[in-house]
Design a protein around this nucleic acid. Structure first.
Lengths: 423, 423
DNA sequence: ACAGTTTCCCGTAAATGC
DNA sequence: TGCATTTACGGGAAACTG
């Protein structure tokens, strides 16, 4: 009888941080006979949840009742928007916590309930509805984990309120998962991931199996287990790249100049026969949130060598925008005059033609001073050997197609509430 | 009968930020006949303040009563330490605010009162004391202004609780003020300001009058009026430099390598006859929180020229430590091989001898990658003319001496309370 | 419209809990 | 003890408010 409505902030819905305001809206879908009746809605956090189901309990710190009102726009529906709601944890409810140790906090699902009661012609009617499952976090550092849960839930179930979903989470097919991953990029930029990028991700997550699009990925593999030999999981790695793009690489990413997801083997294959100075941009696989460029060099003997610069992370990118790094990058080799080794963006776009519009830092003109800028420089004292390919990588397939369906599904799930996580 | 005691956090006392915890301690100086009596102390914010005296009213959000206890260390005194106190503003007390417009929030003085009551041999005794005046702020951006008030008050009055002090604040002699300014540096570093540095500050604040050490400085001139032609006051400028030193320049400052406060005229006089490549470090007078170096250059005709680099501010210094900037700085002139023009720290210390120990960034060794670092570079396309001296500056005097007295005075005033403003 | 002031909340660091 | 989680609060920016 009641239904969620449009969000105000479309970023990272269904995640609530304690102590931070959020907004939610409820709409009555049936028209009431008497419109001037004051219909109060009360919202409750984790109503009727058997204790022990969740390890943490929260309550709404702020006003939780409000009168429904006729919606301004639209067809005279009654609706109510709760703003400035805020959650706080109940401490020491009865000695100990339930459910301990089994799930991490970002796997623990909660819900918001809405109740209203009205009387018409002597008949008392109770209305009740509730939100899709919510994740409650206490620090933005938990946002990536929380968002992984929201994605997994909404990708893999249509149940409106299966709060024990992560007690035994289903697997996702690579076909399903790759669409959601691509969607993570398309929500803030002009495009998602292409076939080649997704195939690198599939291979990274699944190895050889990625060639089979209905191979299944477990929740644990996606988000909980660390990548072999690395101190972070697949999703934590990918999310660090999403954040890097949003904050520091958006113009370059939007122009599709960042190949980004390329294995070292593929990189070698692509650059093998290219002209000296051809380079491509890819994300670091060894460190969180890093981007590097790899360029072709030919030495005196005519042998080709690939060089990759130490990845740039947010701290350096906030001192110097990435396009300017590409413009200004220089290598000093044994005291020789420095030279920028980057000439052509793969396959063969002259650097300035590609990045010219994106250069930004111009020397400031503070009169009595000599303008100064930071320049990224590599100094080679002796020869540095670069990576050599060690394992083979097959070409994996990709099955896109259900994008609209998925996107709509996730949009609906966003309707219930919005929280202010600006990308 | 009661007295404040030692602080736990010695930084920026007497300033309380709303919503941020602070600590205060009270000690009973007389020994009570019956020691096992439970003596409760209650602390109240702005007790008995006639409304209208202040434009904002606050209250203590947290527990404000606590039982006195025998002090662990010391002579068996009763004392009590209030921790986790937190202040919140009362909103809309009765329609409008008092006192509006006259004073800025950082000039509005408040106080904490402590009360206890006990009965001995049928005699009821009320004890009461209060803190030195406090400044309440709502954002750290108000900290410099608040600290200016605390300094001015404690420098110029011995009254324990003159809350209308800034209604008509007294002037300070330059002799008094210069000691407090020097003390601002010595609290976090190995030394205060020397005679020459103080004389530049005095001249900046007072012009020619600085030669007379009992010339008086008004509160307004110190902290409220902007410096001629600049969008900030003298204190805001000086505080921005204090913060820059604390965060980014401490090792270099502690070695006394930063002359810092030098007028352009003095700078020219000092460097006039120096060897090519001699340089000194000074703070920007035109921008908040900036440091620059000025070096001697001789052109083909043997004419001397002084060059100053565009000042480095916190954003660039957090990308690259200052010592490394000095080590790596290069000028590229019309495509010629870049050269570091900095050779000798004034008067004649070879650069690496002075700064060698302070260099820190070493190329990282992430194997497959080529290490890269940011290098500060000035590119000269055509000749850039540097500043030319335009006005004369006399040599001002300095009267140090009461440092211990002053320092003790300010220490006492810090005793009442501490708030967590780290450096 | 605007300046002074407060609120909001991310992101890092420290504290806490288990 | 070590890891997971929460708390603390500086700092930039937006929102508020006369």
């Amino acid at each position: 009888e009641k239904q969620p409505c449009m969000p105000t902030h479309p970023q990272k819905p269904l995640i609530v941080k304690t102590g931070v305001q959020f907004t939610t809206k409820v709409r009555l879908l049936v028209k009431l006979p008497e419109v001037d009746y004051q219909l109060k809605v009360k919202t409750t956090f984790d109503k009727d949840l058997p204790p022990g189901r969740v390890s943490r309990q929260f309550f709404i710190l702020t006003n939780n009742t409000k009168v429904m009102d006729i919606e301004d726009y639209s067809n005279g529906c009654l609706s109510v928007e709760f703003r400035h709601l805020q959650l706080k944890e109940k401490k020491y409810i009865n000695g100990t916590k339930g459910n301990e140790g089994l799930l991490s906090v970002t796997e623990e699902l909660h819900s918001l309930s809405f109740e209203a009661c009205f009387t018409v012609q002597g008949l008392t009617i109770d209305l009740e509805t509730c939100s899709l499952p919510l994740v409650v976090i206490s620090n933005v550092s938990q946002l990536p984990g929380g968002w992984a849960s929201v994605m997994w839930y909404n990708l893999l179930t249509d149940e409106p309120r299966n709060l024990s979903f992560f007690g035994n989470p289903p697997r996702a097919t690579w076909s399903q998962l790759s669409e959601v991953l691509s969607w993570q990029f398309s929500t803030f930029s002009s495009q998602g991931l292409n076939k080649e990028q997704l195939s690198m991700l599939g291979e990274k997550l699944l190895g050889q199996h990625a060639s089979c699009s209905d191979y299944q990925v477990s929740w644990s593999k996606f988000c909980k287990e660390n990548i072999q030999g690395k101190p972070f999981s697949f999703w934590m790695w990918l999310d660090s790249i999403l954040e890097l793009i949003k904050r520091h690489l958006l113009p370059v990413w939007n122009e599709s100049y960042i190949m980004g997801f390329v294995s070292k083997e593929m990189e070698r294959a692509l650059l093998k026969d290219k002209e000296q100075g051809t380079f491509l941009l890819r994300f670091s696989e060894s460190h969180l949130g890093g981007i590097t460029f790899t360029w072709v060099e030919h030495n005196e003997n005519g042998e080709m060598r690939l060089n990759s610069v130490e990845p740039y992370t947010k701290s350096r990118l906030s001192a110097l925008p990435f396009a300017d790094i590409i413009r200004d990058y220089k290598v000093i080799s044994d005291g020789v005059v420095p030279e920028n080794p980057l000439k052509f963006l793969y396959p063969n776009i002259p650097k300035d033609e590609a990045f010219g519009r994106l250069y930004n830092s111009q020397p400031s003109k503070v009169h009595p001073y000599i303008p100064s800028q930071l320049i990224p420089i590599s100094e080679l004292r002796c020869n540095v050997s670069t990576s050599s390919p060690s394992c083979q990588s097959p070409e994996p397939p990709m099955t896109p197609g259900e994008f609209d369906l998925l996107s709509e599904h996730l949009c609906l799930s966003m309707d219930t509430m919005s929280s202010p996580y600006s990308d």
